[in-house]
């Protein structure tokens, strides 16, 4: 189908964007990469009066690393995220997530800010940001507001952003030396939205896990942290018995609705599968790292 008619305007700067939003009101929407929004418009699932194109605001692009914090412009494309040395070195979870986001042609336009603000519960980056305890920065007429990722996602396509606010930057504390990050998802076809997925961030050594964040996606109306399963891992070494324990516990922390892929029982089963795989991957990564250090 064709999109409904709307007003198109392009913001040249952040100030320009806020001015245009004030002018066009709460029925206007931000247009970043448009890879979800323009599809939604074609389905007429959304009929905004105006689209404010923020894709050419230079200040919203780019990735920097300073004082242990990685700062990502909301307008950074998935492709740019995936090839960034800063991301590979300091936030490997995001580098791992990027190839799983749709397809190359979509990653060339889609942006991290767009993905977070659109808040599709099956998308990878929202779960990554919750697992990484990222800080999302929004700018509105009253200035800047910092929002913790775990308070940002409020439901299907719903976030803590106010109508007049624009998501501008994402800040993530760089991975610590003893930190392992990974992401595992199951899809019917490469590039599809996940049937079930998990982002995992663990710290510790062979003797003891000291920190664990396990965040599911495509298994609820927003990213779902499996806090009890994560707590079971802390204070003990990570082994097969612990993997099984955490996977079983995680099933009690989700209440997935059925979808086109299967019912709640199947989704709950898949949650345990992806979590087990992610934890095993972390065991393998940690072992390889220990061997590299020893050598």
């Amino acid at each position: 189908m064709k999109a409904p008619d709307f007003i198109y305007c392009r913001a040249e700067s952040l100030a320009d964007a806020l001015r245009l939003k004030a002018e066009h009101g709460d029925q206007a929407r931000w247009l970043a990469g448009g890879q979800s929004l323009l599809a939604a418009l074609a389905f007429r699932l959304s009929e905004p009066t105006a689209l404010i194109d923020i894709s050419r605001i230079d200040a919203l692009r780019g990735i920097t690393f300073d004082a242990g914090v990685v700062r990502i412009g909301a307008g950074t494309t998935h492709t740019a995220l995936g090839v960034s040395d800063i991301i590979r070195r300091h936030v490997p979870l995001l580098a791992e997530a990027v190839p799983l986001i749709a397809h190359a042609a979509i990653r060339n336009r889609g942006t991290i800010g767009g993905s977070l603000a659109f808040a599709d519960p099956a998308a990878e980056l929202p779960a990554c940001c919750v697992a990484l305890e990222a800080t999302l920065i929004a700018v509105g007429p009253k200035g800047e507001r910092r929002i913790a990722a775990n308070a940002f996602f409020e439901g299907v396509y719903a976030t803590a952003l106010r109508d007049d606010e624009l998501l501008t930057w994402i800040e993530i504390v760089a991975a610590q030396a003893d930190e392992q990050q990974t992401l595992v998802e199951l899809t019917r076809r490469s590039g599809d939205y996940a049937m079930a997925g998990v982002a995992a961030v663990l710290r510790g050594d062979a003797a003891e896990i000291t920190h664990a964040r396990l965040v599911f996606f495509a298994l609820g109306d927003r990213p779902v942290a499996a806090a009890k399963a994560a707590a079971l891992l802390v204070g003990k070494p990570l082994d097969e018995a612990q993997v099984a324990l955490a996977a079983t516990a995680s099933a009690q922390e989700i209440d997935p609705a059925g979808d086109l892929n299967g019912g709640p029982e199947m989704k709950t089963h898949l949650a345990q599968v992806v979590l087990s795989r992610a934890l095993r991957q972390i065991m393998t990564q940690a072992k390889a790292k220990a061997e590299r250090t020893a050598a």
Binding site: Y8, R10, L31, G34, L38, A39, L51, D53, A105, R109
Partner: peptide
Amino acid sequence: TVRVDGAIVRGCLVLAASLD
């Protein structure tokens, strides 16, 4: 699939108006 500024994109997910 076409190229915009050298990179492949989905032509149906790009507004012509945004391509000045």
